Structures are given as C-alpha cells and as structure tokens.
Computed example of a mutant assay.
Amino acid sequence: MDAVCIVCRNDLYDDEWDRYCCRPCQHRIDDNLAALAGPPVWQDTKRGRRLVSGLFAALPEELEPGARGAGPRISGSKSAPIPARMGPLNDSANGGLVNDLEEWVRDWASRGYATPCNGVRPQYRMDQAVTTLRFNLDTAVRRHEAINSFAEELQMIRGTCEALIIGAVPPRPLSAICPCGTRIKFHLDTPIRHCKSCGTDYGHHALIALAVATQAA
C-alpha cells in the first residue's frame, strides 16, 4: 500500500516516505506562515491588490469602524465614536490568534524541535512564533503525526485574518475537548483531526459528537 500525505491525502513519492506530508503541502504551510508575519506588503495581481504578508500587522488597521487595509478610512463625524470592530481587536490581542500559534510552538518544543519564545507585544510574539515554526517545519513534517491538524489550523488563522481585512465574515471555528484534555479546533467541513497529545484520530461525525459533548459538559 502506497504511503499518503496526511494533509492532502495524495500518494507520496518514493523519496517522501520519511515524511507525513508531501513537499507541495509543506510549501503551502510555509507560505501561510510567511503571510502572517512582518509588515503588510501588498502585491498587484490581475484581480486587484492582494496582501501577501503582514496579515496580522494589518489587523489593527481594521479596528477603526469602516476602515479597510486596502482603501481609505471613513472620515469621522461629530457624533459619538462607534466602538472598534471587535473581531480584529479580539484576534490581534493577547490570547487570540497569537496564542493559537504559540500553542503549536510549545507542542513542538515538548517534542524537542522548537524553542518557545518570550515576548509581550502581540506583533513580536507573532513574528517570533512564525520564525520558530518555519525554521523547524522541515523536522515537523517528518516527525509530527498531527502535521495535518497544524496545517488546517494555520489555514484557519490565515483565512480569519484575510476575512477581517476585506470585511468578510470569517469561518467560525468549532472546538472540542479530547478525553485526554487537549482542545481540538475544527470547521464544519473538517474530514478528520488528529489529537496532537494522545494521537487519537477523529472523523467528521466523531468531531461533531465530541464538540456537542464538550458543550454539554
């Protein structure tokens, strides 16, 4: 039986059998990480301007009501100010998207191929987490049996940033607690997730059932 990439489920090439995911998937993971860090960089494409990096740094620009990273801000008025848009505020604050990535840094560190970093400012923490994960990615794709869960959660983080920046509603992640105590995040269309702590595989229906049980508890 041919070995398959646990991210895209395509067959691995003969020289990829020492990996859990194929090289194209590794490149996509690296691209998603790179897109989150650093200052905002826009690129002109056939479909218009596209933010190719600095997605996390662009979130604070979206806190002002009516603001958009690619366009002008709406001018103020003499009326009372409208509260800041809470989505970007929550996602760029401590404990938001930064913490989600730092959880993976701690997980990789517990396996011996990453070093947790200490920081205060969310942007610094994001940049350090991305740098650490990118530096150790080649090891993780060979040794981490839940690299598919990391790839999916990373795609969720990037999608959330992009949706908030263009003003769309980001997909709402669901959450379940594995009996081992580990939190598993997923979407309604997630086919399978792997608990990074105990190694249990959960199919789609099992994830939904686990989420319902978590909410009931």
Rank of each mutant, 00 (worst) to 15 (best):
L174M: 07
I208D: 06
P60H: 04
R125F: 04
P116N: 00
L207P: 13
D14E: 14
M156W: 02
C195F: 07
G69P: 09
E145N: 08
D11L: 15
E64W: 12
E152I: 02
A109E: 01
A80W: 00
E103A: 05
L51V: 14
V4T: 15
R73M: 13
I29M: 04
A163L: 02
L154T: 01
L164G: 03
D201Y: 07
K185L: 04
Y113S: 04
G167S: 09
Q155L: 03
G203H: 08
T45D: 06
C180S: 05
P173Y: 02
E64P: 00
E162W: 01
S79N: 11
D30I: 00
L97C: 04
I177H: 04
R19S: 15
G112P: 11
I192K: 13
M156D: 06
L63H: 04
G199L: 13
P24T: 04
D44N: 05
S149N: 08
R50K: 12
L154C: 03
R50V: 08
N10C: 15
C5P: 06
W42L: 12
T45N: 06
T131V: 11
D44I: 00
A216N: 10
H27R: 13
A67G: 06
W104T: 03
I192W: 02
R111Q: 15
L89F: 10
P122D: 08
A109M: 01
H144C: 14
P72Y: 12
G76C: 12
K46P: 14
V52M: 12
D31N: 10
T139D: 10
Y202T: 03
C25P: 13
Q123D: 10
M1H: 15
V105H: 03
H205I: 05
K196M: 06
E153I: 02
S92P: 03
E61H: 12
K78H: 14
P81C: 14
W104K: 03
C178W: 06
V105D: 03
A216H: 00
C25K: 13
R9L: 15
H27F: 07
G181P: 07
A114D: 10
I147P: 01
N32G: 08
H194E: 00
Q155C: 01
A57M: 04
G48R: 06
G119P: 03
F150H: 05
L55G: 02
D189R: 09
R19A: 15
A213I: 04
Q123K: 11
F150T: 01
R23K: 10
L174H: 06
P88E: 11
K196Q: 07
S110H: 10
E153Y: 02
M126Q: 02
A57P: 05
P24S: 06
C198L: 14
A80F: 01
E153A: 02
M126L: 07
Q26N: 00
V212S: 08
R134K: 14
A206N: 05
A93V: 12
R73T: 10
D30Y: 00
T214S: 14
R9N: 14
A35I: 05
R28L: 11
P39V: 12
D100L: 10
F135C: 09
L164V: 01
A109L: 02
A176M: 13
W17K: 14
Y20S: 07
C25W: 09
R50I: 01
F56N: 01
K196C: 05
G48L: 07
A58N: 07
D44Q: 11
V98M: 02
I208C: 09
P60A: 03
P65F: 08
H187S: 05
D15F: 12
L36I: 03
